[in-house]
């Protein structure tokens, strides 16, 4: 969103309350010093810097914030939270926004989410993550066939990547699969995107 001419019209008070409740943070304590932006290692990959996201959340500009690329590129390194002069857990707010965007299917950087699910699918299937499986699934989903192909010879030579997944024995894999199943069912019940 670019032309925010009437802040009152764009403000969504419910959104402010929702972010505050889910993150446990009080948005009005931000005084826009920019320390979060200054220390953010991923800022160069953002469309809007962290302090801009904080400002948007503070004003209740829901679409503006949830559609941003930044919330998907956040590394959850907690540098912003650690150094915020107002003790705001900014990383928790970024994660809250990411969850909210996902649930509403407002995913502006699909490849990041695709990578997450590629990873989680191997966990769901075997109980543990499996690097080659994650890579293969991700290539399939993202149609980025040559992802990290430059690393393959070295990784294979050093036997860093097992060809076969490890399946958690004695029903362990099944137990993990059921966690995912219940998670999905509950999301359906609650009408949110899992």
């Amino acid at each position: 969103m670019s032309n925010i001419t009437d802040i009152r019209l764009k403000r969504d008070a419910g959104f402010i309350a929702e972010v505050e409740a889910a993150s446990g943070q009080k948005l009005s304590t931000c005084y826009q010093c920019g320390n979060c932006t200054a220390g953010c290692p991923a800022g160069f990959a953002y469309d809007k810097q962290v302090n801009r996201i904080m400002r948007g959340a503070q004003l209740g500009l829901k679409d503006d914030v949830l559609n941003s690329r930044a919330i998907w590129m956040c590394l959850s390194c907690f540098t912003c939270s650690l150094r915020c002069p107002n003790n705001i857990d900014v990383a928790a707010i970024m994660e809250t926004l990411r969850h909210m965007a996902r649930k509403k299917n407002m995913v502006s950087v699909r490849k990041v989410e695709k990578f997450w699910f590629s990873f989680l699918n191997t966990v769901r299937a075997f109980g543990r993550s499996w690097e080659i499986g994650t890579m293969a699934l991700y290539m399939l989903r993202s149609l980025r066939v040559f992802t990290d192909i430059d690393l393959a010879p070295e990784a294979l030579k050093k036997q860093k990547l097992p060809f076969k997944p490890y399946v958690v024995p004695n029903g362990g894999a099944g137990a993990v699969g059921r966690i995912f199943k219940r998670y999905r069912e509950r999301a359906d019940r609650e009408g949110v995107r899992p």
Binding site: C33, G34, N35, C36, T37, A38, G39, Q49, N51, T79, R83, P85
Partner: peptide, 20 residues
């Protein structure tokens, strides 16, 4: 206009000031 998140020596005699 912005606060500084960190200052550290760059190993070559200068200091990196990370601000915004």
């Amino acid at each position: 206009r912005g606060r500084v998140s960190a200052i550290y020596p760059d190993g070559l005699g200068q200091y990196v000031v990370m601000g915004s």
